[in-house]
Design a protein around this nucleic acid. Structure first.
Length: 505
RNA sequence: GGCGCAUUCGUCUAGCGGCCCAGGACAUCGCCCUCUCAAGGCGAAGAUCGCGGGUUCGAAUCCCGCAUGCGCUACCA
Protein backbone atom coordinates (compact mmCIF):
# COMPACT_ATOMS: atom_id res chain seq x y z
CA UNK A 1 0.00 0.00 0.00
CA UNK A 2 1.19 3.44 -0.89
CA UNK A 3 0.88 6.53 1.15
CA UNK A 4 -2.19 7.45 3.12
CA UNK A 5 -4.85 9.09 0.99
CA UNK A 6 -7.81 10.91 2.44
CA UNK A 7 -10.71 12.52 0.70
CA UNK A 8 -13.71 14.60 1.15
CA UNK A 9 -16.62 14.12 -1.17
CA UNK A 10 -19.18 16.86 -0.78
CA UNK A 11 -22.20 17.05 -3.00
CA UNK A 12 -22.76 20.47 -4.51
CA UNK A 13 -26.35 20.79 -3.38
CA UNK A 14 -25.76 23.84 -1.25
CA UNK A 15 -22.98 25.96 0.09
CA UNK A 16 -20.33 24.51 2.37
CA UNK A 17 -22.09 23.19 5.41
CA UNK A 18 -20.43 23.51 8.78
CA UNK A 19 -20.57 19.73 9.21
CA UNK A 20 -18.85 19.17 5.89
CA UNK A 21 -16.27 21.73 6.82
CA UNK A 22 -15.50 19.81 9.96
CA UNK A 23 -15.26 16.53 8.08
CA UNK A 24 -12.98 18.22 5.58
CA UNK A 25 -10.86 19.64 8.35
CA UNK A 26 -10.39 16.29 10.08
CA UNK A 27 -9.49 14.60 6.82
CA UNK A 28 -7.13 17.41 5.94
CA UNK A 29 -5.46 17.28 9.34
CA UNK A 30 -5.11 13.52 9.27
CA UNK A 31 -3.63 13.55 5.79
CA UNK A 32 -1.09 16.23 6.67
CA UNK A 33 -0.25 14.58 9.93
CA UNK A 34 0.41 11.29 8.21
CA UNK A 35 2.21 12.85 5.29
CA UNK A 36 -0.44 11.66 2.91
CA UNK A 37 -2.64 13.14 0.22
CA UNK A 38 -5.93 14.91 0.51
CA UNK A 39 -8.36 14.74 -2.34
CA UNK A 40 -11.45 16.74 -3.15
CA UNK A 41 -14.03 14.88 -5.13
CA UNK A 42 -17.31 16.44 -6.07
CA UNK A 43 -20.19 14.07 -5.68
CA UNK A 44 -22.47 15.62 -8.25
CA UNK A 45 -24.03 12.45 -9.56
CA UNK A 46 -26.33 13.89 -12.18
CA UNK A 47 -29.15 15.10 -10.06
CA UNK A 48 -31.53 17.97 -10.08
CA UNK A 49 -30.14 19.20 -6.79
CA UNK A 50 -26.55 19.53 -7.86
CA UNK A 51 -25.44 22.92 -9.10
CA UNK A 52 -22.09 23.94 -10.47
CA UNK A 53 -22.09 27.25 -8.60
CA UNK A 54 -22.23 25.37 -5.34
CA UNK A 55 -19.02 23.62 -6.28
CA UNK A 56 -17.43 27.06 -6.43
CA UNK A 57 -18.87 28.07 -3.05
CA UNK A 58 -17.63 24.88 -1.47
CA UNK A 59 -14.15 25.34 -2.86
CA UNK A 60 -14.11 28.97 -1.78
CA UNK A 61 -15.32 28.09 1.68
CA UNK A 62 -12.68 25.41 2.10
CA UNK A 63 -9.95 27.74 0.94
CA UNK A 64 -11.17 30.48 3.20
CA UNK A 65 -10.76 28.14 6.13
CA UNK A 66 -7.25 27.37 5.03
CA UNK A 67 -7.97 23.84 3.92
CA UNK A 68 -6.12 22.80 0.79
CA UNK A 69 -6.06 19.63 -1.22
CA UNK A 70 -3.62 17.93 -3.49
CA UNK A 71 -6.02 16.75 -6.14
CA UNK A 72 -9.44 17.93 -7.12
CA UNK A 73 -11.64 19.17 -9.94
CA UNK A 74 -9.91 22.54 -9.79
CA UNK A 75 -6.39 21.14 -9.60
CA UNK A 76 -6.53 17.98 -11.54
CA UNK A 77 -4.38 15.04 -10.53
CA UNK A 78 -3.50 11.61 -11.75
CA UNK A 79 -6.60 9.95 -10.39
CA UNK A 80 -9.20 12.08 -12.14
CA UNK A 81 -11.68 13.05 -13.17
CA UNK A 82 -12.70 14.43 -9.81
CA UNK A 83 -16.32 15.04 -10.53
CA UNK A 84 -18.43 11.99 -10.04
CA UNK A 85 -20.65 12.93 -12.95
CA UNK A 86 -17.65 12.65 -15.25
CA UNK A 87 -16.92 9.12 -14.15
CA UNK A 88 -20.08 7.56 -15.40
CA UNK A 89 -18.37 5.29 -17.89
CA UNK A 90 -16.01 4.01 -15.24
CA UNK A 91 -18.87 3.21 -12.92
CA UNK A 92 -20.62 1.34 -15.67
CA UNK A 93 -17.57 -0.80 -16.30
CA UNK A 94 -17.48 -1.84 -12.70
CA UNK A 95 -21.18 -2.39 -12.71
CA UNK A 96 -20.64 -4.76 -15.60
CA UNK A 97 -18.20 -6.75 -13.50
CA UNK A 98 -20.82 -7.22 -10.86
CA UNK A 99 -23.38 -8.17 -13.48
CA UNK A 100 -21.00 -10.66 -15.06
CA UNK A 101 -20.28 -12.23 -11.73
CA UNK A 102 -23.96 -12.69 -11.07
CA UNK A 103 -24.26 -10.34 -8.14
CA UNK A 104 -27.07 -8.39 -9.70
CA UNK A 105 -30.42 -8.67 -11.35
CA UNK A 106 -32.83 -6.46 -13.24
CA UNK A 107 -35.81 -5.17 -11.33
CA UNK A 108 -38.90 -4.05 -13.16
CA UNK A 109 -40.89 -2.88 -10.18
CA UNK A 110 -42.20 0.63 -10.63
CA UNK A 111 -41.60 3.40 -8.15
CA UNK A 112 -45.31 3.46 -7.39
CA UNK A 113 -45.34 -0.23 -6.70
CA UNK A 114 -42.34 0.07 -4.43
CA UNK A 115 -43.75 3.03 -2.57
CA UNK A 116 -46.97 1.17 -2.04
CA UNK A 117 -45.19 -1.87 -0.65
CA UNK A 118 -43.15 0.29 1.62
CA UNK A 119 -46.20 2.01 2.98
CA UNK A 120 -47.94 -1.26 3.51
CA UNK A 121 -44.99 -2.66 5.40
CA UNK A 122 -44.86 0.42 7.57
CA UNK A 123 -48.54 0.12 8.34
CA UNK A 124 -48.20 -3.51 9.25
CA UNK A 125 -45.19 -2.75 11.37
CA UNK A 126 -42.81 -4.71 9.18
CA UNK A 127 -39.38 -3.60 8.13
CA UNK A 128 -39.79 -1.90 4.76
CA UNK A 129 -37.44 -3.91 2.69
CA UNK A 130 -37.61 -4.86 -0.93
CA UNK A 131 -39.52 -8.07 -1.43
CA UNK A 132 -37.14 -9.55 -3.97
CA UNK A 133 -39.96 -9.94 -6.41
CA UNK A 134 -37.77 -9.67 -9.51
CA UNK A 135 -34.93 -11.63 -8.06
CA UNK A 136 -35.58 -14.88 -9.82
CA UNK A 137 -36.98 -13.75 -13.12
CA UNK A 138 -35.84 -16.03 -15.92
CA UNK A 139 -33.28 -14.76 -18.40
CA UNK A 140 -35.84 -15.06 -21.16
CA UNK A 141 -38.36 -12.96 -19.35
CA UNK A 142 -35.79 -10.32 -18.51
CA UNK A 143 -34.54 -9.95 -22.04
CA UNK A 144 -37.97 -9.90 -23.55
CA UNK A 145 -39.18 -7.23 -21.14
CA UNK A 146 -36.02 -5.25 -21.76
CA UNK A 147 -36.53 -5.59 -25.49
CA UNK A 148 -40.06 -4.39 -25.07
CA UNK A 149 -38.59 -1.21 -23.68
CA UNK A 150 -39.54 -1.76 -20.07
CA UNK A 151 -37.52 0.22 -17.58
CA UNK A 152 -35.43 -1.62 -15.05
CA UNK A 153 -33.09 -0.85 -12.23
CA UNK A 154 -30.20 -3.04 -11.32
CA UNK A 155 -30.23 -4.45 -7.85
CA UNK A 156 -27.53 -6.07 -5.80
CA UNK A 157 -28.21 -9.55 -4.51
CA UNK A 158 -27.70 -9.31 -0.79
CA UNK A 159 -26.70 -12.54 0.86
CA UNK A 160 -27.85 -12.47 4.47
CA UNK A 161 -24.98 -12.42 6.92
CA UNK A 162 -23.41 -10.26 9.55
CA UNK A 163 -21.23 -7.52 8.13
CA UNK A 164 -18.67 -6.15 10.49
CA UNK A 165 -16.05 -3.47 10.45
CA UNK A 166 -13.42 -2.09 12.69
CA UNK A 167 -14.14 1.60 12.70
CA UNK A 168 -11.37 4.04 13.46
CA UNK A 169 -13.51 6.02 15.84
CA UNK A 170 -16.41 3.75 16.74
CA UNK A 171 -14.47 0.57 17.19
CA UNK A 172 -15.93 -2.75 16.13
CA UNK A 173 -19.46 -2.49 14.82
CA UNK A 174 -21.68 -4.79 12.83
CA UNK A 175 -24.99 -5.06 11.11
CA UNK A 176 -27.20 -7.87 9.90
CA UNK A 177 -27.42 -7.73 6.13
CA UNK A 178 -30.44 -10.00 6.27
CA UNK A 179 -32.47 -6.98 7.19
CA UNK A 180 -31.68 -4.94 4.15
CA UNK A 181 -33.27 -6.41 1.11
CA UNK A 182 -31.63 -6.11 -2.27
CA UNK A 183 -30.63 -2.54 -2.89
CA UNK A 184 -30.42 -0.59 -6.12
CA UNK A 185 -27.05 -0.13 -7.78
CA UNK A 186 -28.13 1.62 -10.94
CA UNK A 187 -31.19 3.65 -11.74
CA UNK A 188 -33.43 2.78 -14.64
CA UNK A 189 -31.60 5.35 -16.76
CA UNK A 190 -28.42 3.38 -16.20
CA UNK A 191 -26.72 5.85 -13.89
CA UNK A 192 -25.18 4.36 -10.81
CA UNK A 193 -26.40 5.25 -7.38
CA UNK A 194 -24.13 7.06 -4.94
CA UNK A 195 -23.53 4.04 -2.77
CA UNK A 196 -22.02 2.16 -5.66
CA UNK A 197 -20.17 5.07 -7.21
CA UNK A 198 -18.29 5.85 -3.99
CA UNK A 199 -16.96 2.38 -3.79
CA UNK A 200 -15.62 2.51 -7.32
CA UNK A 201 -14.24 6.01 -6.93
CA UNK A 202 -12.61 5.44 -3.58
CA UNK A 203 -10.98 2.34 -4.88
CA UNK A 204 -9.78 3.87 -8.14
CA UNK A 205 -8.50 6.92 -6.33
CA UNK A 206 -6.59 4.66 -4.04
CA UNK A 207 -8.22 6.12 -0.95
CA UNK A 208 -6.82 4.50 2.17
CA UNK A 209 -8.99 6.20 4.79
CA UNK A 210 -12.61 7.13 4.51
CA UNK A 211 -13.48 9.50 7.32
CA UNK A 212 -17.00 10.81 7.17
CA UNK A 213 -20.08 11.53 9.25
CA UNK A 214 -21.72 8.83 11.33
CA UNK A 215 -24.80 9.22 9.18
CA UNK A 216 -22.95 7.07 6.67
CA UNK A 217 -22.56 4.05 8.91
CA UNK A 218 -25.41 2.11 7.33
CA UNK A 219 -24.04 2.91 3.90
CA UNK A 220 -20.65 1.64 4.89
CA UNK A 221 -21.93 -1.85 5.60
CA UNK A 222 -23.45 -1.99 2.15
CA UNK A 223 -20.31 -0.64 0.59
CA UNK A 224 -18.24 -3.29 2.32
CA UNK A 225 -20.37 -5.90 0.67
CA UNK A 226 -19.68 -4.33 -2.70
CA UNK A 227 -15.96 -4.16 -2.08
CA UNK A 228 -16.09 -7.86 -1.45
CA UNK A 229 -18.19 -8.65 -4.48
CA UNK A 230 -15.77 -6.64 -6.60
CA UNK A 231 -12.92 -8.36 -4.85
CA UNK A 232 -11.31 -5.08 -3.88
CA UNK A 233 -9.28 -4.17 -0.87
CA UNK A 234 -11.31 -1.80 1.24
CA UNK A 235 -10.11 1.35 2.92
CA UNK A 236 -10.15 1.95 6.64
CA UNK A 237 -13.36 3.60 7.73
CA UNK A 238 -13.86 6.19 10.40
CA UNK A 239 -17.23 7.64 11.31
CA UNK A 240 -17.22 10.84 13.18
CA UNK A 241 -20.11 12.09 15.27
CA UNK A 242 -22.50 14.63 13.86
CA UNK A 243 -22.81 18.29 14.58
CA UNK A 244 -26.22 19.06 15.98
CA UNK A 245 -28.23 22.23 16.34
CA UNK A 246 -29.49 23.64 19.62
CA UNK A 247 -32.52 21.37 19.28
CA UNK A 248 -30.17 18.41 19.08
CA UNK A 249 -30.97 17.56 15.52
CA UNK A 250 -28.59 17.11 12.67
CA UNK A 251 -27.58 20.57 11.56
CA UNK A 252 -29.70 21.42 8.57
CA UNK A 253 -30.27 24.35 6.31
CA UNK A 254 -33.32 25.48 8.21
CA UNK A 255 -31.26 26.07 11.33
CA UNK A 256 -30.03 29.41 10.09
CA UNK A 257 -26.31 29.72 10.10
CA UNK A 258 -25.06 26.37 8.92
CA UNK A 259 -23.05 27.59 5.98
CA UNK A 260 -19.43 28.50 6.45
CA UNK A 261 -20.16 31.38 4.12
CA UNK A 262 -22.46 32.93 6.67
CA UNK A 263 -19.78 32.98 9.30
CA UNK A 264 -17.50 34.61 6.84
CA UNK A 265 -20.18 37.20 6.16
CA UNK A 266 -20.59 37.87 9.84
CA UNK A 267 -16.94 38.61 10.03
CA UNK A 268 -15.58 35.63 11.90
CA UNK A 269 -11.91 34.90 11.39
CA UNK A 270 -11.26 31.63 9.61
CA UNK A 271 -8.59 30.66 12.11
CA UNK A 272 -11.12 31.02 14.91
CA UNK A 273 -13.71 28.98 13.05
CA UNK A 274 -11.15 26.26 12.40
CA UNK A 275 -10.02 26.22 16.02
CA UNK A 276 -13.58 26.02 17.24
CA UNK A 277 -14.65 23.36 14.79
CA UNK A 278 -11.59 21.26 15.45
CA UNK A 279 -12.57 21.02 19.09
CA UNK A 280 -16.11 19.97 18.26
CA UNK A 281 -15.59 16.27 18.53
CA UNK A 282 -11.90 16.09 19.02
CA UNK A 283 -9.47 17.16 21.73
CA UNK A 284 -5.75 16.92 22.22
CA UNK A 285 -6.03 15.00 25.48
CA UNK A 286 -4.71 17.82 27.59
CA UNK A 287 -6.20 21.16 28.45
CA UNK A 288 -4.84 23.23 25.61
CA UNK A 289 -7.47 24.76 23.40
CA UNK A 290 -5.88 27.41 21.23
CA UNK A 291 -4.49 25.94 18.05
CA UNK A 292 -3.32 27.31 14.76
CA UNK A 293 -3.77 25.11 11.73
CA UNK A 294 -0.15 24.01 11.93
CA UNK A 295 -0.41 23.20 15.57
CA UNK A 296 -3.54 21.20 14.83
CA UNK A 297 -1.69 19.21 12.21
CA UNK A 298 0.94 18.47 14.78
CA UNK A 299 -1.30 17.30 17.57
CA UNK A 300 -4.16 15.80 15.61
CA UNK A 301 -4.83 12.12 15.82
CA UNK A 302 -7.87 10.23 14.68
CA UNK A 303 -8.05 8.06 17.76
CA UNK A 304 -8.98 11.09 19.81
CA UNK A 305 -12.12 11.81 17.84
CA UNK A 306 -15.08 11.74 20.19
CA UNK A 307 -17.91 9.25 19.83
CA UNK A 308 -20.91 11.36 20.68
CA UNK A 309 -22.62 14.10 18.74
CA UNK A 310 -21.83 17.69 19.50
CA UNK A 311 -24.01 20.74 19.59
CA UNK A 312 -22.81 23.79 17.76
CA UNK A 313 -22.61 26.56 20.34
CA UNK A 314 -22.10 29.97 18.77
CA UNK A 315 -21.28 31.58 22.09
CA UNK A 316 -18.12 29.55 22.23
CA UNK A 317 -17.24 30.46 18.67
CA UNK A 318 -17.70 34.11 19.61
CA UNK A 319 -15.25 33.70 22.42
CA UNK A 320 -12.68 32.04 20.20
CA UNK A 321 -13.08 34.80 17.68
CA UNK A 322 -12.58 37.48 20.30
CA UNK A 323 -9.40 35.80 21.44
CA UNK A 324 -8.06 35.72 17.89
CA UNK A 325 -9.05 39.33 17.30
CA UNK A 326 -7.21 40.49 20.39
CA UNK A 327 -4.20 38.38 19.64
CA UNK A 328 -3.69 39.78 16.19
CA UNK A 329 -1.57 42.86 15.58
CA UNK A 330 -3.73 45.90 15.05
CA UNK A 331 -2.16 46.48 11.66
CA UNK A 332 -3.06 43.07 10.50
CA UNK A 333 -6.48 43.27 12.04
CA UNK A 334 -7.04 46.57 10.31
CA UNK A 335 -6.33 45.08 6.93
CA UNK A 336 -8.70 42.23 7.54
CA UNK A 337 -11.37 44.50 8.91
CA UNK A 338 -10.87 46.87 6.05
CA UNK A 339 -11.38 44.11 3.53
CA UNK A 340 -14.46 42.97 5.33
CA UNK A 341 -15.96 46.43 5.52
CA UNK A 342 -15.04 47.30 1.97
CA UNK A 343 -16.84 44.23 0.76
CA UNK A 344 -19.86 45.52 2.54
CA UNK A 345 -19.31 48.86 0.89
CA UNK A 346 -18.75 50.62 4.15
CA UNK A 347 -15.28 51.85 4.02
CA UNK A 348 -12.40 52.18 1.73
CA UNK A 349 -8.93 53.40 2.34
CA UNK A 350 -9.26 54.88 -1.10
CA UNK A 351 -11.52 57.91 -0.61
CA UNK A 352 -12.60 58.14 -4.21
CA UNK A 353 -14.01 54.70 -4.37
CA UNK A 354 -16.85 54.38 -1.95
CA UNK A 355 -19.93 56.44 -1.62
CA UNK A 356 -21.17 54.79 1.46
CA UNK A 357 -21.15 56.31 4.87
CA UNK A 358 -21.60 54.95 8.31
CA UNK A 359 -24.43 57.10 9.41
CA UNK A 360 -27.43 55.10 8.34
CA UNK A 361 -26.93 53.04 11.46
CA UNK A 362 -28.48 55.59 13.71
CA UNK A 363 -30.82 56.85 11.09
CA UNK A 364 -29.28 60.23 10.59
CA UNK A 365 -28.70 60.96 6.93
CA UNK A 366 -25.33 62.62 6.88
CA UNK A 367 -23.34 62.75 3.70
CA UNK A 368 -19.91 61.17 3.75
CA UNK A 369 -17.30 63.56 4.86
CA UNK A 370 -13.67 63.59 5.78
CA UNK A 371 -12.83 60.13 4.55
CA UNK A 372 -10.55 58.62 7.07
CA UNK A 373 -7.09 57.52 6.28
CA UNK A 374 -5.89 54.02 6.99
CA UNK A 375 -3.97 55.44 9.92
CA UNK A 376 -7.08 56.92 11.38
CA UNK A 377 -8.84 53.61 10.93
CA UNK A 378 -6.02 51.77 12.62
CA UNK A 379 -5.99 54.20 15.52
CA UNK A 380 -9.71 53.80 16.01
CA UNK A 381 -9.52 50.06 15.67
CA UNK A 382 -6.77 49.91 18.24
CA UNK A 383 -9.24 51.32 20.73
CA UNK A 384 -12.05 48.97 19.78
CA UNK A 385 -9.95 45.89 19.41
CA UNK A 386 -10.71 44.31 22.73
CA UNK A 387 -14.38 45.03 22.32
CA UNK A 388 -14.79 43.17 19.05
CA UNK A 389 -16.18 39.69 18.86
CA UNK A 390 -16.75 39.62 15.11
CA UNK A 391 -16.44 42.13 12.32
CA UNK A 392 -20.17 42.42 11.85
CA UNK A 393 -20.16 44.44 15.05
CA UNK A 394 -17.70 46.92 13.63
CA UNK A 395 -20.11 49.41 12.06
CA UNK A 396 -22.10 49.75 15.25
CA UNK A 397 -19.00 49.89 17.40
CA UNK A 398 -17.02 52.33 15.28
CA UNK A 399 -19.75 54.36 13.71
CA UNK A 400 -19.01 57.50 15.70
CA UNK A 401 -15.45 57.68 14.48
CA UNK A 402 -16.55 58.16 10.91
CA UNK A 403 -19.67 60.27 10.74
CA UNK A 404 -19.64 64.03 10.88
CA UNK A 405 -22.51 64.43 13.26
CA UNK A 406 -23.24 61.83 15.81
CA UNK A 407 -26.65 61.50 17.26
CA UNK A 408 -26.76 62.15 20.98
CA UNK A 409 -30.02 61.75 22.80
CA UNK A 410 -30.66 64.89 24.82
CA UNK A 411 -31.78 63.06 27.90
CA UNK A 412 -28.67 60.90 27.71
CA UNK A 413 -26.57 63.99 27.35
CA UNK A 414 -27.67 65.42 30.68
CA UNK A 415 -25.63 64.24 33.59
CA UNK A 416 -27.69 61.99 35.80
CA UNK A 417 -26.66 63.89 38.88
CA UNK A 418 -26.99 67.38 37.53
CA UNK A 419 -29.36 69.70 35.73
CA UNK A 420 -29.52 70.39 32.04
CA UNK A 421 -28.13 73.90 32.39
CA UNK A 422 -25.35 72.77 34.69
CA UNK A 423 -24.41 70.06 32.23
CA UNK A 424 -24.46 72.60 29.45
CA UNK A 425 -22.18 74.90 31.40
CA UNK A 426 -19.85 72.03 32.15
CA UNK A 427 -19.62 71.08 28.49
CA UNK A 428 -18.87 74.67 27.61
CA UNK A 429 -15.94 74.55 29.94
CA UNK A 430 -14.75 71.27 28.51
CA UNK A 431 -14.87 72.81 25.06
CA UNK A 432 -12.86 75.78 26.29
CA UNK A 433 -10.36 73.45 27.79
CA UNK A 434 -9.99 71.44 24.61
CA UNK A 435 -9.74 74.62 22.59
CA UNK A 436 -6.96 75.79 24.82
CA UNK A 437 -5.06 72.59 25.40
CA UNK A 438 -5.61 70.54 22.32
CA UNK A 439 -6.72 66.98 22.63
CA UNK A 440 -3.42 65.46 21.68
CA UNK A 441 -1.92 65.90 25.07
CA UNK A 442 -4.11 63.28 26.47
CA UNK A 443 -2.53 63.00 29.85
CA UNK A 444 -2.92 66.65 30.54
CA UNK A 445 -6.45 66.70 29.18
CA UNK A 446 -7.37 64.05 31.67
CA UNK A 447 -5.72 66.01 34.46
CA UNK A 448 -7.49 69.20 33.49
CA UNK A 449 -10.79 67.40 33.16
CA UNK A 450 -10.45 65.95 36.60
CA UNK A 451 -9.61 69.27 38.16
CA UNK A 452 -12.46 70.82 36.23
CA UNK A 453 -14.75 68.28 37.82
CA UNK A 454 -13.29 69.28 41.19
CA UNK A 455 -13.93 72.94 40.46
CA UNK A 456 -17.50 72.13 39.59
CA UNK A 457 -17.83 70.00 42.66
CA UNK A 458 -18.75 67.07 40.41
CA UNK A 459 -17.55 63.56 40.53
CA UNK A 460 -15.27 62.88 37.59
CA UNK A 461 -17.53 60.19 36.18
CA UNK A 462 -20.51 62.54 36.23
CA UNK A 463 -18.62 64.89 34.01
CA UNK A 464 -17.09 62.28 31.73
CA UNK A 465 -20.33 60.63 30.80
CA UNK A 466 -21.99 63.66 29.19
CA UNK A 467 -18.76 64.30 27.31
CA UNK A 468 -18.69 60.71 26.19
CA UNK A 469 -22.26 60.90 24.97
CA UNK A 470 -21.58 64.18 23.24
CA UNK A 471 -18.60 62.74 21.42
CA UNK A 472 -19.79 59.25 20.66
CA UNK A 473 -23.52 59.12 21.18
CA UNK A 474 -23.03 56.01 23.24
CA UNK A 475 -22.55 55.05 26.86
CA UNK A 476 -20.29 52.17 25.96
CA UNK A 477 -17.10 53.32 24.33
CA UNK A 478 -13.36 52.98 24.57
CA UNK A 479 -11.63 55.10 27.21
CA UNK A 480 -12.63 58.73 26.81
CA UNK A 481 -9.32 60.50 26.51
CA UNK A 482 -7.83 58.07 24.09
CA UNK A 483 -10.98 58.37 22.07
CA UNK A 484 -10.69 62.15 22.06
CA UNK A 485 -7.14 61.89 20.91
CA UNK A 486 -8.09 59.73 17.97
CA UNK A 487 -11.03 61.92 17.04
CA UNK A 488 -8.86 64.99 17.08
CA UNK A 489 -9.52 68.57 18.08
CA UNK A 490 -11.74 69.42 15.20
CA UNK A 491 -14.25 66.63 15.69
CA UNK A 492 -14.20 66.94 19.44
CA UNK A 493 -14.86 70.64 19.40
CA UNK A 494 -17.52 70.34 16.77
CA UNK A 495 -19.39 67.69 18.70
CA UNK A 496 -19.02 69.46 22.00
CA UNK A 497 -20.46 72.62 20.50
CA UNK A 498 -23.30 70.68 18.97
CA UNK A 499 -24.13 69.20 22.33
CA UNK A 500 -24.02 72.58 24.01
CA UNK A 501 -26.35 73.90 21.37
CA UNK A 502 -28.64 70.96 21.90
CA UNK A 503 -28.76 71.59 25.61
CA UNK A 504 -29.50 75.24 25.13
CA UNK A 505 -33.04 74.74 23.99
C1' G B 1 -41.71 -0.35 13.14
C1' G B 2 -36.55 -2.43 12.18
C1' C B 3 -31.36 -1.78 12.52
C1' G B 4 -27.03 0.99 14.03
C1' C B 5 -24.53 4.38 17.10
C1' A B 6 -24.41 7.39 21.27
C1' U B 7 -25.51 8.95 26.59
C1' U B 8 -20.18 13.05 32.21
C1' C B 9 -22.10 20.48 34.52
C1' G B 10 -26.87 24.75 29.98
C1' U B 11 -22.73 23.95 25.90
C1' C B 12 -17.70 21.76 24.19
C1' U B 13 -15.11 18.21 26.81
C1' A B 14 -11.10 15.41 30.45
C1' G B 15 -11.65 10.64 32.42
C1' C B 16 -9.95 4.43 29.55
C1' G B 17 -11.02 0.01 37.84
C1' G B 18 -8.63 2.99 43.12
C1' C B 19 -5.28 9.75 41.97
C1' C B 20 -12.80 11.56 40.84
C1' C B 21 -18.40 12.59 46.59
C1' A B 22 -15.50 14.01 38.86
C1' G B 23 -10.92 18.29 36.18
C1' G B 24 -10.72 22.32 32.24
C1' A B 25 -13.07 25.80 28.75
C1' C B 26 -17.48 28.72 27.01
C1' A B 27 -21.87 30.78 28.89
C1' U B 28 -24.06 32.59 33.77
C1' C B 29 -23.48 35.17 38.56
C1' G B 30 -20.39 37.92 42.20
C1' C B 31 -16.02 40.70 43.58
C1' C B 32 -11.54 43.40 42.12
C1' C B 33 -9.56 46.85 38.46
C1' U B 34 -12.06 51.29 36.47
C1' C B 35 -14.23 57.70 33.36
C1' U B 36 -18.44 53.99 30.61
C1' C B 37 -18.09 49.37 27.89
C1' A B 38 -14.82 45.75 27.27
C1' A B 39 -10.41 43.09 28.34
C1' G B 40 -7.94 41.11 32.56
C1' G B 41 -7.59 39.00 37.70
C1' C B 42 -10.09 36.38 41.58
C1' G B 43 -14.23 33.62 43.11
C1' A B 44 -19.19 31.22 43.03
C1' A B 45 -22.84 28.35 41.19
C1' G B 46 -23.46 24.29 38.00
C1' A B 47 -22.98 16.80 36.64
C1' U B 48 -26.72 11.87 42.52
C1' C B 49 -21.33 10.53 35.62
C1' G B 50 -29.46 8.74 31.63
C1' C B 51 -32.02 4.68 34.77
C1' G B 52 -31.92 -0.39 36.86
C1' G B 53 -29.31 -4.62 37.68
C1' G B 54 -24.81 -7.25 37.96
C1' U B 55 -18.95 -8.22 38.07
C1' U B 56 -15.23 -6.48 41.70
C1' C B 57 -12.39 -5.35 48.09
C1' G B 58 -13.43 -1.02 44.88
C1' A B 59 -17.02 1.42 38.75
C1' A B 60 -18.10 7.48 35.46
C1' U B 61 -14.77 3.66 33.87
C1' C B 62 -16.25 -3.71 32.62
C1' C B 63 -21.05 -6.79 31.49
C1' C B 64 -26.53 -7.15 30.82
C1' G B 65 -31.29 -4.97 30.43
C1' C B 66 -34.32 -0.50 29.99
C1' A B 67 -35.00 4.62 28.70
C1' U B 68 -33.82 8.66 25.82
C1' G B 69 -31.46 11.02 21.69
C1' C B 70 -29.54 10.94 16.97
C1' G B 71 -28.79 8.51 12.37
C1' C B 72 -30.11 5.16 8.52
C1' U B 73 -34.20 2.52 6.64
C1' A B 74 -35.06 6.14 -1.52
C1' C B 75 -34.29 4.57 -8.77
C1' C B 76 -30.78 11.30 -2.37
C1' A B 77 -25.89 12.17 -1.35
Amino acid sequence: MGKPRFRIAPSPTGSLHIGNARTALYNFLASRKLGGDFILRIEDTARDRSKIEYERTIIDGLHWLGINWDEGPDLGGSYGPYRQSERLQIHKEFLQILIDRGYTYHCFCSREELAFERELAQKQGRAPKYSGKCRDLSDEEVSSRLDAGEEATIRFRVEPRIVGLDDIVMGKIEEDAGLWGDFVLARSDGTPVYNFAVVVDDHLMDISHVVRGADHISNTFKQIMMYEALDLERPRFGHMPLTLNAKRQKLSKRDGSVAVEEYREQGYLPEAVVNFIALLGWNPGDEREMFSMNELINVFSMDRITTSNAIFDVARLDWFNGVYVRKMSTDQLAHRANDYLSDLGYFSSNPTRSSNDWSHLNGVPVPPHDWPSMNYFIAALELEKERIRKFAELPELMNFFFVEDIYADTSQLISKKHSQSDTRAALVRVAELVGLQGVNKMDTVEKYMRSLADDLGWRAGDLFMPVRIALTGSRATPPLFETMKVLGDQRVLHRLNKAVEQLSS
